[in-house]
Design a protein around this nucleic acid. Structure first.
Lengths: 193, 193
DNA sequence: TGTACATCAGTGAACGCGCGTTCACTGATGTAC
DNA sequence: TGTACATCAGTGAACGCGCGTTCACTGATGTAC
């Protein structure tokens, strides 16, 4: 059958949405295309109507999901929510307990480091935009210092979230999140002095 | 043929060594047992003389490799090398460029978070020992605060190392490492006041 | 001391399975005349 | 207005391949007598 105008775009974004959630929840290598297509209520073959390969899908997911997150952060900043609010949300119990809805970077950064150059190029560009955004929202000295502080802050958020997720002891995991939040706030406040 | 006494232990540790390097370099899911056995100059079947399953191997690798790292840190501390030295080494260019020889946690923490309970239990215990060690080497206030600072410091080291590895731009990657080192030293020094 | 047997680390082929990818086909709708 | 054809998103079976795991077998050495 032939479909209505816009149908293809809807299907494509449905596949992207399913893939993004499953990649974040289970990792890229552990998720098969057949499972993604099944979750999107489609059959195997339709995948290649929308994407060139699995790697193409990975790239689209990384760019698309990071873009949405960045836009949400910019919108939140425009409404007056500062870095402190972002840090508390990023290292919240909810964020820890729902990796499939959370940050792509925390879920996939180590895996992306082993992907082809083109995928890493795209991730690099998006990460640069994130660090720029954070640096812009850090008060204080010269741009280079702000940028380095932004990298340390973001790295700390990513690393503590991953540790909190991997650790199988609730009290210890909570403690890691609290440590991350306090250290994050310290970086933000250190810059304000 | 029948082998000399101690031969089996040697073979086992050869498999462990190969697996540890390849898991860290390529990820657990991306490395097959056949490849590991080939690298260890053995055939497929011999694997099950030494390990119950791939998951069993993963557990042995995690415990063994983290144990060695912790022992090395304790030995270094006994020789007068403090946390500052450890931070600089952890976030060095060499460490970034040789993931297969580096920290298991930085390489595999996100993947371990998705592994079975028993694997996560072992990782949790070892991570607790790491945080204890770091906390013991942080000067300052009450134990709970030291432990939280240790978590933030370790998380920051893990996260910034991962970012520096994934990012495909040398200058940006170097900047991330520098930011991580400076933030790490700030945490250590903050505690000394 | 010499011989027969037990041991067991390692061999290598085979198992079922799910992977990413390909491709001939379908059929409802849009378009041309 | 009615009819014939083109389009193309999606179907579903099939491809070769490598995965983790199993298992009957090998054969040099240790042990028993």
């Amino acid at each position: 059958m032939r479909y209505e105008k816009g149908q293809k775009e809807l299907t494509r974004s449905r596949i992207l949405d399913v893939a993004s959630r499953r990649f974040r929840g289970e990792g890229v290598a552990a998720v098969g295309l057949a499972g993604i297509m099944q979750d999107a209520d489609l059959t195997n073959g339709a995948f290649y109507v929308h994407f060139k390969s699995k790697e193409d899908l990975v790239q689209e997911v990384v760019v698309d999901t990071l873009d949405r997150r960045l836009q949400a952060m910019i919108a939140a900043a425009a409404e007056g929510f500062g870095l402190e609010h972002g840090i508390r949300e990023y290292l919240s119990l909810q964020a820890r307990d729902a990796p499939n809805e959370g940050c792509v970077t925390a879920a996939l950064v180590a895996e992306i480091a082993r992907h082809p150059k083109q995928t890493r190029d795209l991730f690099t560009r998006k990460t640069g935009e994130f660090l720029d955004f954070i640096a812009d929202n850090l008060a204080g000295r010269d741009p280079a210092t702000r940028r380095k502080d932004a990298a340390a802050l973001f790295g700390m958020m990513v690393g503590t979230l991953q540790l909190a997720r991997a650790v199988n002891d609730r009290a210890m995991s909570d403690q890691i999140l609290e440590g991350g939040i306090e250290a994050g706030l310290a970086i933000v406040r250190r810059q304000q002095q």
